[in-house]
């Protein structure tokens, strides 16, 4: 059954406070979820008093500054720092977003940073995305066609055909959408989640793909697809302004249309 409280070993206790150095300019409190699996202790919420003038403008800059100057054990994923790799997705002030594209001045009050919700935590802000990636792999996110490609050039698409996959193909697999979805929280073992379904849609509407029917067959399932109840947290959360909720609705529409 879905639970109302966190399991006892996941409940967050009060953490350490790292004071700002005297004479610091503009100080902001950054509260960060900390969890070390080797400590045997429950997660805790540490407070870092940050001199905002001393680091860059984004939340990721604050994290990098804290790791470099205050606590080197702080663990998080990051790579491109420009919103294209999807590594630094985390829950910032209650919203799933990328730390690198979230400016601190757009956040009010203390900055609260947690890992993506309802995932197993590897350490601090690093969630275990193993199943998330397996769900992506399960929709066979590659071109399947029986017609061989022309020997002398690529498989062609019209401009309109390309536009159908243009937005869905811009997904960076950051997992902000899936981990914002209540249906995914309760049934992530069987529901594929918005990210994998958006990827499936991207191949279903690809004019070059010839496995559309098989793809729809694989999705037609009370759990894999129909756990989606159009809550639309996914679309709200997407840092790339994509629309997984609409893609899922389009898949449901195609499933009805092929039997009417």
């Amino acid at each position: 059954m879905a639970g109302f409280r966190l399991p006892p070993n996941s409940r967050i206790r009060k953490g350490l406070t790292h004071r700002a150095t005297p004479g610091a300019g503009e100080v902001r409190a950054v509260r960060i979820y900390r969890f070390d699996p080797t400590s045997g202790q429950n997660p805790r919420l540490d407070t870092f008093e940050l001199d905002v003038k001393g680091c860059g403008p984004m939340v990721l800059d604050a994290l990098i500054h804290i790791k470099a100057a205050v606590d080197s054990s702080l663990t998080f994923r990051r790579s491109c720092r420009e919103g294209i790799c999807g590594s630094c997705a985390m829950n910032i002030n209650g919203v799933n977003r990328l730390a690198c594209t979230t400016a601190m001045q757009d956040l009010s009050g203390a900055i609260r940073i947690y890992p993506l919700p309802h995932m197993s935590v590897v350490k601090d802000l690093v969630p275990d995305l193993t199943d998330f990636y397996a769900q992506y792999a399960s929709v066979k996110p590659w071109l399947q066609a029986r017609t061989p490609a022309p020997p002398d050039r690529e498989r062609l698409q019209s401009k309109e055909e390309q536009e159908r996959i243009d937005r869905p193909a811009a997904c960076i697999l950051c997992a902000c959408c899936s981990t914002a979805c209540p249906s995914y929280w309760w049934n992530s073992d069987r529901f594929l989640g918005p990210a994998a379904l958006l990827a499936a849609y991207r191949w279903i509407v690809d004019s070059r793909d010839e496995a559309t029917g098989e793809r729809l067959d694989e999705l037609q399932d009370p759990f894999r697809l129909y756990r989606c109840h159009t809550i639309m947290n996914c679309t709200d959360a997407c840092p790339k302004d994509l629309n997984p909720a609409k893609a899922i609705a389009e898949i449901k529409k195609l499933l009805v249309e092929r039997q009417c």
């Binding site: 193993t130 694989e218 009370p222």
Partner: peptide
């Protein structure tokens, strides 16, 4: 394997009727 877990017992190939 994670993929084995996700694929599980496969698609029920049912659900569109309920939704409709």
């Amino acid at each position: 394997s994670p993929l084995g877990r996700v694929l599980g017992t496969g698609s029920a190939k049912e659900g569109v009727q309920h939704w409709w």
